[in-house]
Amino acid sequence: MMPALAPLPFATEACNDSGYHDEASGIGHDETARRALRAALGQFATGVTVVTATGADGEPVGVTINAFASVSLAPPLLLWCLARASGSLPALRAAPCHAINVLAGGQQALCARFAARGIDRFAGIDCRPGPCGTVLIAGALASFICRHRSVRAVGDHVVFVVEVVAYASSPGLPLVFHGGGFAGADQQ
């Protein structure tokens, strides 16, 4: 039996406000409620991707993302989200193109590496330059070369709606994140 739903401490009508500085947002300020919401959201299994590009300084930039979805086939649009606090945000937002690399089941170490802070995420990684200044990760199940269509700050994240300009894929089992860990750990 599903427990009673908690009332939301803010209006839910559609609006153009990002809500990032909304003081009425009770969940955002209540750590217990945030952890409970995060645990509930974690019940939705997601694939894992690494978004890569080349920064203005010519150095590669990349970050692990699991907020990723297909939006449209005509035109081919994808959506991904990145925390406003991410150090990679300025470079990824400014890059003319980026690659979304869908990780395979055996690439859990890559997921962790591109989620880590304060390291050279590309050191020792098997990757190659892709079109338009992107970086393609070897062994990824799919790579999508994309350009920004819409970039919008929403809450504590930035939502990127991007257009696919090229892609490649190969068969295999995906890396799946569920319930705070990796599903099908025997794939790893």
Rank of each mutant, 00 (worst) to 15 (best):
L141I: 05
A142W: 10
G179Y: 07
F177Y: 15
A153W: 07
A112R: 14
H157R: 06
L103A: 02
H178F: 13
P96N: 12
A91P: 01
F160C: 02
G105C: 05
G87A: 13
V161D: 01
A94T: 09
G124T: 12
D126S: 11
R147Y: 08
A104S: 13
P76W: 09
L79W: 07
I100K: 00
A109Q: 15
G106V: 02
Q107K: 05
L79Y: 05
G133N: 04
P76L: 08
D120G: 11
E163I: 02
R121A: 11
L110K: 02
A91W: 00
Q107R: 04
V176H: 03
D126E: 15
L136S: 06
R128N: 08
R84Y: 07
G105M: 03
A104T: 01
C127R: 04
A166F: 07
P75Y: 09
I125C: 13
A99G: 07
G133H: 04
R152C: 14
S88F: 06
I137Y: 01
C111A: 15
S88K: 04
H178W: 12
I125G: 08
L92Y: 02
A85L: 09
C132E: 15
G106P: 01
S88T: 13
G172S: 09
L92V: 07
G87V: 08
G172I: 04
P75T: 10
A83C: 06
V161S: 03
A95L: 04
P131H: 12
R121F: 04
C111Y: 00
G118D: 14
S143C: 11
L82H: 04
V135Y: 00
G155A: 08
S88V: 07
P171Q: 12
V154S: 11
